[in-house]
Nucleic acid binder design. Structure first.
Lengths: 177, 177
DNA sequence: TATTGTTATACTCTATAACTATA
DNA sequence: TATAGTTATAGAGTATAACAATA
């Protein structure tokens, strides 16, 4: 993890120090990079209380929002290679938070589904995430927070960052239909 | 780098895919984490054109703003372990962008100084960073950009993130003086 | 005896590529 | 022949701890 050098980046896990401080406070870019890093780090701590790592949460959330999708589709959405996907799914399946099921027509494909426990843990994680959100936005009036979000969305647009969720399997039809 | 799972984190280098998309667009936390990640990634691309990695830029910048500080002080500021610091300093010294000098009174200590070339490269990198800044803030009027920065600073305060630079060696006096 | 910097090393994470089974 | 998923493996990056010189 050295993305921290921000605006270099860096990935953080629950690993200790990242190269963090880097930018002038007058720059939106530096500030965003630094806040993003710290936000991610805090989130890791928060979901860590549930025994989850950020990547596990990310997968639970993706599956929760797109029940029945294939591993491949979800891996592409999360922008991780197939081999990494296998490891994460293995981990969560071992903890009985999600399960692989056979695809109804294609026996090569595995579809992913949350278990009851997975839904519970995901809900708990979302609750904790909302608590962090409140901490992040402390002192903001609702209208101010909305303005901040609107500006951040504009920045996302400027950077071609998609904030969209993955449609569930039912929404996906073969192109030729 | 998997901090990308955002708000997991992650560090990014110039490495390809990071687990990126994760959060609902209605959350400041998720959005910040995602934008921070992308900003850091873009910055890595930008300074990469100068042959720098984000961590190299971070060190050049820290030294440029605190000429003559010891490796230890700067490593602490950057929140990286001493052994990592050695590797980065080695790299930049090999490229003649900075140099180690002997401390005037303590022969254990090395002080860090930018070379003329280092100053040039740092200035070029700052110019490129400003170009990225313009891209990030495209469509914002100056007053809007100021409002965004002010809000981000408030978030930084909420998260105890320091945006301060490191004082240079001259500003450091032993506590007992 | 404590501290600065260095070196050696072990560990984690990630991605590439080979492999199996299906289509 | 191509694709979904799996496994094996090699590489990068990081941190921990032992070490040398100096205080």
């Amino acid at each position: 993890m050295y993305s921290a050098c921000v605006p270099g980046t860096s990935d953080l896990g629950e690993r200790p120090g990242a190269m963090a401080a880097t930018g002038p406070a007058e720059s939106v870019g530096f500030t965003l990079a630094q806040l993003g890093l710290e936000t991610a780090r805090r989130f890791g701590e928060v979901v860590g209380a549930l025994g989850l790592e950020p990547r596990h949460f990310a997968l639970l959330r993706a599956v929760g929002g797109a029940e029945g999708q294939s591993q491949q589709v979800i891996a592409e959405y999360l922008q991780i290679p197939a081999s990494t996907m296998v490891a994460i799914v293995d981990h969560l399946e071992l903890e009985s938070l999600l399960e692989r099921r056979l695809h109804p027509t294609d026996r090569r494909t595995r579809t992913l589904h949350l278990t009851a426990g997975g839904k519970t843990v995901l809900a708990e994680a979302m609750t904790l995430a909302m608590g962090l959100e409140d901490q992040i936005c402390a002192g903001f009036e609702p209208a101010q927070r909305d303005r901040l979000l609107a500006m951040l969305r504009q920045v996302a647009g400027n950077l071609d960052v998609s904030l969209a969720a993955l449609p569930d399997a039912g929404g996906h039809r073969p192109a030729h239909v």
